[in-house]
Design a binder for these strands. Structure first.
Lengths: 113, 113
DNA sequence: GATACATGCAACCAAACAGTTGCGTATTAA
DNA sequence: TTAATACGCAACTGTTTGGTTGCATGTATC
């Protein structure tokens, strides 16, 4: 049984996940992948202000926490979103919200007695 | 009307918010504040592995994105959670999920026709 | 008023990060 | 087979980050 469990997502797993989301360029990448579907590095770099190499690094960061996944196709590498991990982050915040509500409830009961 | 809007939370606002959440020590602080209620710096440092000054810095980071708030009370400074900003992060992820679902729906319609 | 307590301020440090540039390698296409 | 395309690798750089330590300042309390 896991210690320090919060809605199925471990605390030590959640931090790197949020850290990966904590960059504007990476958030834009995620949004692009979400609405525009999978794309090659060159395609993903096209509208970006930063270089192709920078995009590659950001994609690596995102892939390390499982937010994206890539497959080789010919001479290009196609990246796609892994929405499962986004759900994990979502779930973690849900867990905190639940804790918060519980604490409020207990405080309410304490005051009323 | 705001540009680059995603469920009411701006992209450029979301990145620092997630970045603030992207540290294990800070996540633990948030969890502590959620379940244990407000506390002084000394109280919040007590169970921590790092120094009081480190905790202070983390609280500053959290306060800069509005996740916590502090008030002076006598010789101590009491910190409390601001759940509104947590809801913002939550909402942002919701927005991406919605985008993702829409993209899937469009793809489905495209394939079926 | 002296003492203990709680915090603030500042300097410092190593490591990580976001980004660039240059060059090499694989894979199509002419 | 020669170009053009798409990517990978590596070195380098300035800045941020997470952390420490030492000392100063404000505030109760006796």
């Amino acid at each position: 049984m896991p210690r320090s469990n919060l809605a199925g997502v471990q605390v030590r797993d959640a931090a790197p996940l949020f850290a990966a989301l904590g960059d504007e360029t990476r958030l834009k990448l995620i949004s692009r992948l979400t609405t525009g579907g999978p794309g090659s590095i060159t395609q993903l770099s096209e509208k970006s202000a930063v270089s192709r190499q920078a995009i590659t690094k950001h994609l690596t960061v995102l892939s390390q926490v499982g937010l994206v996944h890539s497959t080789r196709r010919g001479r290009e590498r196609v990246w796609e979103l892994r929405p499962r991990r986004l759900a994990d982050a979502h779930q973690y915040l849900d867990g905190i919200s639940r804790q918060w509500d519980q604490a409020l409830e207990q405080l309410k009961r304490f005051v009323e007695e």
